[in-house]
Write a protein that binds this DNA or RNA. Structure first.
Lengths: 211, 211
DNA sequence: TAGATTGTTAATCGATTAACAATC
DNA sequence: TAGATTGTTAATCGATTAACAATC
């Protein structure tokens, strides 16, 4: 399990391989080749092998990969075999959606605390969780041993939320706000570029005079 | 306004520049250099200039770029100056969130029709729109001249939804389902890789023994 | 053994960055 | 004019793909 120079893209694809392996496993197959994996992921088979080798030697020449073993290995490598307590900041439309989104729980991300700066909302309950004041983020998440923060605030409030989360000891942030967060080294930020994706789509349609 | 070989990444960054230009414009500045833009976007200034030149010559040597003019130009290039009628498929948690998410409307993406395959839901209203049966996607969207489809269904229903959307004449799809949609050439699919991002974050924390 | 497919090296491709003449 | 900053070319870097010896 090396670590020094693994491309971000390879890590992202690891997640894709895991998803495909699950499908293949559920279909009852026990082994799979890099060619098959590549085909299903829309990639090159050399790339699949190269990606996997960053993390270990999982294959058998002439045979391919053991589906369930590789699936389990990737799950472990990605740390998806443990539950992770999460805090959500910003209980607006997007925040409420994420709160209800089953994809988080399925991956072991358990939302344990939710925050907003709107005093109209603070104190009310959403999905069984009381909305807390953003001012108290750091003390609350220390109490609940939260490890990951999700930022679903408007862009103007995002940096403040990030600061408070980091103050509370958080090391990883999933950021939905369309701004580049400034964080000290040692903090991992993963951006979900919703607006950018939307505007890209607009561009491609517009270019072809389809709008 | 060339078109033959513009990298996807440059298009995505165009959206980022637009966002930053808005901030600079609102702060009252009239010109901006590639260095300043780069700094705010966390990029290299040569990259900013190269990206922009794909789309035209907007700058003045010695001066930089006219903020409002560049902002307007990018908006136009991305087709964000017109309203786009949109259909949403999958009115589950994620779908309902997207329905309420103001970011779509702000960018001119107006959700005009919503679909689900759950007969419990069909006929009910959400955000002032009646939920329609997925079976009727193609006829309904033809009627409403919808140009873009958003897929927020579970993965198992995503390909069916995509097929129906395409049957109805749609050329662009924003896909939130974690599967690689198979579409004929001429259809633009932009994937929002929510799960992959989440799992990436898990990986980086796990690697550093932070979970 | 023969056939298949891995892990890995080398070749290719594309994207980022540095450098600088052109020019406001 | 002198200083600043563009657009652009060349150099660098990194990621993808092809090819193949090793090996099950």
């Amino acid at each position: 399990m090396e670590s020094y120079k693994i491309p971000k893209k390879s890590v992202e694809r690891l997640s894709i391989y895991k998803r495909i392996l699950k499908v293949i496993m559920d279909a009852g197959f026990t082994t799979v080749s890099s060619r098959e994996l590549a085909e299903r992921a829309g990639l090159n088979s050399a790339q699949v092998r190269k990606d996997l080798v960053y993390f270990g030697q999982f294959g058998t020449p002439g045979m391919g990969y053991q589906v369930s073993m590789l699936h389990r290995a990737i799950t472990k490598i990605m740390g998806l075999h443990k539950k992770i307590p999460v805090a959500l900041t910003g209980v607006g439309n997007l925040g409420q959606a994420l709160l209800a989104y089953p994809g988080f729980k399925e991956r072991g991300f358990i939302i344990e605390a939710i925050f907003d700066n709107d005093h109209e909302k603070v104190g009310k309950k959403k999905n069984g969780l009381k909305i807390l004041d953003e001012k108290n983020i750091s003390s609350e998440i220390k109490k609940k041993k939260v490890r990951v923060g999700i930022i679903a605030t408007p862009p103007s409030a995002a940096q403040f939320a990030a600061n408070k989360l980091i103050e509370g000891g958080i090391k990883g942030i999933l950021n939905f706000a369309p701004i580049e967060l400034k964080v000290p080294s040692g903090i991992t930020v993963v951006n979900v570029a919703l607006c950018e994706k939307l505007e890209m789509l607009s561009y491609y349609l517009s270019k072809r005079k389809l709008l």
